[in-house]
Write a protein that binds this DNA or RNA. Sequence first.
DNA 1: ACGGAGAGTGTACGCATGTACACCCAAACA
DNA 2: TGTTTGGGTGTACATGCGTACACTCTCCGT
Lengths: 222, 222
Amino acid sequence: MPPRKTASKDPEPLPRSARKDLTRAKLLQAARTLMGEGRSFTSLGLREIAREAGVVPNAFYRHFRNTDELGLVLVEEVGITLRRLLREARKMDVAPRDMLRRSVSVYLEYVKLNRLQFVFISSERSGGSRILRLAIRNDVTHFTNEMAQDFRMRGLYAQLPTASLQMVCGMIVMTMLAAATDVLDLPPDQALLEAEMSENFVQQLKIILFGATRLNDALTRS
Amino acid sequence: MPPRKTASKDPEPLPRSARKDLTRAKLLQAARTLMGEGRSFTSLGLREIAREAGVVPNAFYRHFRNTDELGLVLVEEVGITLRRLLREARKMDVAPRDMLRRSVSVYLEYVKLNRLQFVFISSERSGGSRILRLAIRNDVTHFTNEMAQDFRMRGLYAQLPTASLQMVCGMIVMTMLAAATDVLDLPPDQALLEAEMSENFVQQLKIILFGATRLNDALTRS
DNA sequence: ACGGAGAGTGTACGCATGTACACCCAAACA
DNA sequence: TGTTTGGGTGTACATGCGTACACTCTCCGT
């Protein structure tokens, strides 16, 4: 065994706070990894996460009071992801032909890119810890509201009262989440099934948008 | 202590198989009760259920191999409940004015009446055990298909190809489940919020049906 | 240069869990 | 009638968990 001083294993001569953030990140990543292996977040234990992170269980407490608190951080990240998604959607040129179809495929790519996060929300949104559930719903609601606001700014469905607009956006979001769940538990490399699913998704959105248009027109006429 | 023979506690002189079914029922009921107290099914343990049922842990094994297997029985019951719902919906007179609104309120009553079952599916549909998840989706899919078949028999959206009709029904079912989740975690005796929620639900279904009509008309014309 | 702070460690405790095995005893059956 | 069957019991064990406490050692401010 080599002498202890600056031994071969402690590699980075990092400032202390950076080191802390690093193991914190390791813990978060450990949780994500375990979820990636099919475990549901709720079923993860503090010890299990610490083990996966290569850290002794007690170290966990230096960063989070319990697993729920770690979960909240993950939820926060989801919030950021969703906000980024909206921001990118906003940048898309308005109303070129086939825009819907393109949005859908962009979104589905986004889901696959952030697979773990979507797995996380879709499985914790209804099951598991009450606190997490509420936090997730909160984020989803925010997302919905921002989408409604975007519709307003673009002058879409201008006749709809805010409540109705939010309801329509709620339906869209619900459909998006359902679609995400569907792609996610599709076995990988099933391009055909995936295309079919995606087409379904497009049709569903069309139906909602048709319906919303009609609602809007009815209000315009009166 | 009284003598053992036909002691005061073993009351019913039931045939053996009936006794078995009885404790089996007690186990199932115990699971339901615990869920009613806010626990999620996934988090229930064999010992916990046995305890609640007033039975020693080992007795559990005489009825189910593990908790998942008990869960499957609960799912089966849900299937029956859903089928009954459809059967009753079929009996409703076709297309009197306000039929949608009436259906919705009947459905929501039904949800509240079978609260535990709906709590169960909405929380296990995405979280928890893989096996249960699949079983539940299976039931939901069946429900969707039967609904599509009913639409066909009533001549609704007759121009829609089967796949599209199923997709529309899928949306309706998705919306129904979302609405169920919403009423269920509404605090009790919030008649106002509930009415609002119910009205939202009606609007959502209208949107879907409008959209479907338009899809159908487009196909009729061509 | 020194002292304190604080991230990470090691050991230990109490508790709940799933499951195995031997057992009891009333009903079912011969 | 005697024998078998099988639902329910009691005891026991290994395992994993969350958490408490005392510890080390390194970085950081003085």
